[in-house]
Computed example of a mutant assay.
Amino acid sequence: MQTIKLNFPKPSKVFNKQIYDSLEDYSKFIEVWYGGASSGKSYGVVQKVVLKALKQWKHPRKILFLRKVDRTVADSIFSDVKNCLERWRLLDLCKINQSNHTITLPNGAQFLFKGMQDPERIKSITGLSDVVMEEASEFTLDDFTQLTLRLR
């Protein structure tokens, strides 16, 4: 297991202000980020989650990134996470499985990327520490309920 230390200038030009102000606040069970198109919310959330996963925890994080439909995963959230890791010069230290859409960080943290069109497939995933719902407005209340049950 490898430890990674990142240093960003303060105040940081790497993060938008909304994300920067809550970058290390993990006190809320649910966070909702909203804004207009191209406001940086998706990429900002990716940055926050990558930083959280890189920290040293008792157990490495296992983070599920979701879109409503899995065919949209590769060109959206999976690509965003890889871009973040590349910009921070970490991608070469990670294990990437393109066909399963998984990324393992040097410290053992895992990112899983799935679609929620078949909730039964999500039910079999165990040990999740975090869930990110990309474009949450596309999900149903039942989807949300199932996800919260996975995290308890």
Rank of each mutant, 00 (worst) to 15 (best):
I125Y: 11
Q2G: 12
I19N: 00
A109I: 03
E120N: 14
V81Y: 06
S124C: 06
Q18W: 03
L23W: 05
T3Y: 09
T102F: 10
I96D: 08
V45C: 13
I103Y: 10
T148K: 04
P106E: 04
R150Y: 00
T3H: 13
C84G: 09
P106K: 04
S124N: 14
F8V: 06
L105N: 06
V73R: 04
V32Q: 08
I77L: 00
T102E: 11
W33N: 12
D75Y: 06
K52T: 02
Y20A: 14
I125P: 04
T140I: 08
F139D: 14
K55P: 02
Q56G: 05
R152E: 15
T104F: 06
V14L: 03
V45N: 10
V81W: 09
E24L: 11
V45I: 15
F29P: 06
K48N: 08
E138Q: 15
F111A: 05
K28P: 00
Q117P: 00
A109V: 03
A74W: 07
W57I: 02
K82H: 07
K114D: 01
L147K: 00
Q117T: 07
Q47F: 04
K5M: 12
K68G: 02
D80H: 14
Y26V: 01
F78D: 03
L128Q: 00
D75L: 06
I63N: 10
C94K: 09
F139C: 10
Q110A: 04
T104A: 12
D92W: 00
R67D: 01
Y43S: 07
D21Y: 05
R67H: 03
V45K: 05
L147M: 15
D25I: 05
T126R: 12
C84Y: 02
L149H: 13
G108S: 02
W88P: 00
V69I: 14
I30E: 12
G115H: 09
K68D: 07
R67K: 11
T3G: 04
K123M: 12
E24F: 13
Q56R: 15
S22N: 14
H59Q: 15
S12I: 02
L66I: 05
L91D: 03
G44L: 01
K17T: 04
D92E: 14
L91C: 01
P9G: 08
S129W: 01
L149T: 11
I19T: 09
K58Y: 13
V81A: 07
L90P: 11
R61S: 14
D118K: 11
A136E: 10
G108F: 01
M116F: 15
W57T: 04
K52Y: 14
Q146N: 11
D70T: 03
K55W: 02
S129L: 02
N16C: 01
A53Y: 09
Q110G: 02
L66Q: 01
D70S: 13
P60S: 12
R67Q: 07
M1D: 10
R87L: 12
K62C: 11
G127Y: 01
V132F: 05
N100A: 14
G127M: 01
V49I: 14
